[in-house]
Structure formats: C-alpha cells, structure tokens
Design a protein around this nucleic acid. Structure first.
Lengths: 214, 214
DNA sequence: TGAAATATACCAACTGGTCGGTTATGGTTC
DNA sequence: GAACCATAACCGACCAGTTGGTATATTTCA
C-alpha cells in the first residue's frame, strides 16, 4: 500500500482550534482543576500551538468564560435531545431527567462531573467574569427544569408549599454535592444515592401523582 | 514607663507555627482554592517564614493532608460543643444540626464553606493522600450524624425505606452542593434554600414525629 | 545548682524550574 | 489578501523546595 497522507493525526482540522481548546478545557479542568491546568496543558490536549491559543483568546481567563458558555451549549443540547425530554407529563420529564443523570455516571468521575461547578469552586472570589459565566450556566440549566416543576406543581398539588425555581435549583445543588462527595469517597455511589434521595423527596412531595414504578 | 519588650508582635508565639499554617490553609484555600494558593501565601498569612513551613511539612501536599485532618478536629469540636447537640431526641438533634448549619452562613462565602470539599474537588484525581484525608473528614462527620439517623429511624418509623448512613451522607451532599451553587450564584440563599428542602424531606419522611414548629 | 551540650523551632536568602503571556515570522487555506 | 494557525524564542513573575544559619528550649552532667 502507498504511504498514506497523514490525514488523521491528533491535530484538529483547520478552523477547529477554538472548539478543540474549549473541549480540552472541559476535559482537563474537570480532572485536575482550573488553576492546576496550564495554557500549555490545554494546547497539548487540543493538539494546537500556543500561538493558536492566544489568537483565539486574549487570556486564560477569557478562555474560562468561553468554556463556561460552551459548557452550557453542549449540555443543553445533550438534555434537549435525550429521550426523556419527549415525555408529555412534566413530572415524568423530571424523573426522566434524574434517571438520565444517573445513567450518565459511567467511567471515571471526571468524565461525568461538571465543568462549571468544578471551576466556580476555585474562582468565585478571584475572577468575577468566570464566576458569572459559571453561574449563568447553572441558573440557565435550572431555569429549564423550573418550567417543568411549575407545570408539575399546578398539575399535581404538592404536599408541602414549594417553589418551582427553588426546587429546580435544589436539583442542581444535589447533583453538585453528589459530585463533591463522590470525589471525596472515590465512589460514584454517593452521587447515585443522592439522586435516589432526591427522587424520594419528589415522590413524597407529589405523592398523589406517582404511578406504578418502572 | 520603661520601653516594653516587644512581646506582642504580629508574629505568633514560638511553637505555634504549625497550627498557624494549618489555620492559614483553611482560610486562604477556601477563598482561592488549593492550587492557586502558594506556600508563600500560607506563610505570609500565618506570619511565619518559608523555613518554618518546610520544617513542619515535607511538602505542600503533606500540609494538605494535615490541614484536612485538622479541619476534622476543628469542625467536630464545633458541632460537639453546640447547644443543639444536647437535645435528648435524635430527630431534634438532626433538625438542630441543620438549623445550626444555616445559622453559620454569615459573612463572605469563604468564611463558612468547607475546606475539604473545596480541596477535594481539585485534587481527587491527582493526589491520593489528600483525597483520602478529605474523604475521611467527610465520612467521619457523616458517621456521627448516622448515629442520630439510626436512632431516629427506630424511634420514628419513616414513610419510605431509608438507610441511616445513606441519609447522613446525603446531608453532607446537600451542604456541599449548597456551597457550590452559592458560589455560582454569588448568594448564600441557594445554600439556605437547600437546607430548607432537606428539612422538608426529613419532615415528610418522619412526618408522624413532627411537633409544633419553632 | 548551673553551665555545657543538644534538640527544637524557626528565619532570610537563594535555586532551578514553570507560569501566563508576548513577539516576530511565516505557511496554508478559502 | 484576510483569516487561521505553526514555530519558536523570549520575558518577568512566581513557583515549590533547599540551604546555611540563628535563637530558644530542654536535657545532661559536674
């Protein structure tokens, strides 16, 4: 066979350096944290040069902001296209969401934990732009859940007075906490248990609406 | 008056450098993260020299392990001496614990967030000794709560099948998640709401045992 | 009892290396 | 020709860790 042109090196196709760097940030930062990740780390992971980095981003912090926004884009598409999202009943969509989150817990912890949660823990007091971008990612995601909670509350009156937006943010709190505790124990079981308790809470809240278990 | 000997400089008394460095780690790392905190940062915060640092700790990582253990010592004493801990009823102790946690949320976020939770987020994959020490701090704390949950479960049969150890770890999950989301939103309200939802969950679980509200 | 010997607890200055970021040049593709 | 990126040398600041030395506390022993 002839010597094939090296058309499939690790180097991304021309024009993709920016996206490759953002994806590299998601991967490396989730594993080793924001401050411990150097610009060179990101460049080598993305397979691009340092010149490419500073062509697209004026600073490491500016990449952090863009990576948080890109995280929102990637995750919102993931959940919007998931099967559970098609269900007509809002409460079923919420339980489907939590089952979907549980099903994502495969592989090493850094493969399913949250980029913005990890990052904001480090920079909330030292980089307001990154903090703000991470905050927007979480609150925007919660806002989509809040719509389902609001519909569920009107359709299935809950046992206790609860607010849709507060419940939606609480789901994110439980997931973020599950990531932290799973990292501490070295076991994804803590996250799965937390999701189970959250489902338990919702089952008790919307007790009248629960149908036969799956 | 005679020229007083300079007995009250900012420098800590001899023999306290180790504790001063551990306390400095708790303070500075909670604010700016583990990797972003340099050894010099810790030394200047503690008011000791770099030589003192490496006299007491062989490396920055070794200080991290010691700081996690010291965090356990400090926090377990804090909760053991709190008033709520005197209550004879286990469920009352648990609600008292959560009210106490809520009452601690004063001042800037870094003054009441968790050192081990912040640290383990960064190093869980890169420093097994620190990860293990942080994990022990959280699981040990949860184990003390688990004793109260076990007593509460036998005294007040819950509405759904729950495990004491799992519930205890879930409380830590909710708190850790509350720290993360509060950092993201820049507002402690997320943490307070999360504690309220957790109390809500326990109230629904142990519904028969709830007395008049405070 | 007291001075010498030793161990403990630090300090200031320094080292080799890495950090984020810059600059300058040039190749490649649309 | 403009957008996109590689290469590579470079900078000042900062990093973890080391060094040689000093002041104080404790022990030893005459």
């Amino acid at each position: 066979m002839p010597t094939s042109p090296q058309n499939s090196t690790t180097r991304p196709a021309r024009g993709n350096a920016r996206i490759a760097l953002l994806a590299a940030a998601h991967k490396v930062v989730r594993r080793q944290g924001w401050a411990a990740t150097s610009v060179d780390d990101l460049c080598s992971e993305a397979g691009v040069s340092k010149g490419a980095f500073f062509y697209h981003f004026a600073s490491k912090d500016e990449l952090g902001v863009a990576a948080a926004q890109h995280w929102s884009d990637v995750t919102s598409a993931l959940f919007a296209n998931a099967a559970y999202h098609q269900h007509p009943d809002p409460l079923e969509r919420l339980f489907g969401y939590l089952d979907f989150r549980a099903a994502l817990t495969e592989g090493p912890l850094e493969s399913f934990t949250c980029f913005v949660g990890t990052t904001v823990q480090e920079v909330f007091a030292t980089s307001q732009p990154i903090r703000s971008a991470c905050g927007a990612s979480i609150t925007d995601h919660a806002a989509r859940l809040a719509a389902d909670f609001a519909a569920a509350i009107t359709r299935y009156p809950p046992r206790a007075a609860v607010d849709a937006a507060s419940l939606a943010l609480y789901t994110q709190t439980v997931l973020q906490g599950g990531f932290v505790v799973s990292k501490a124990t070295g076991d994804r079981a803590a996250l799965l248990d937390a999701i189970a308790h959250l489902k338990n809470y919702l089952s008790l809240l919307f007790a009248d609406a629960r149908r036969s278990p799956s």
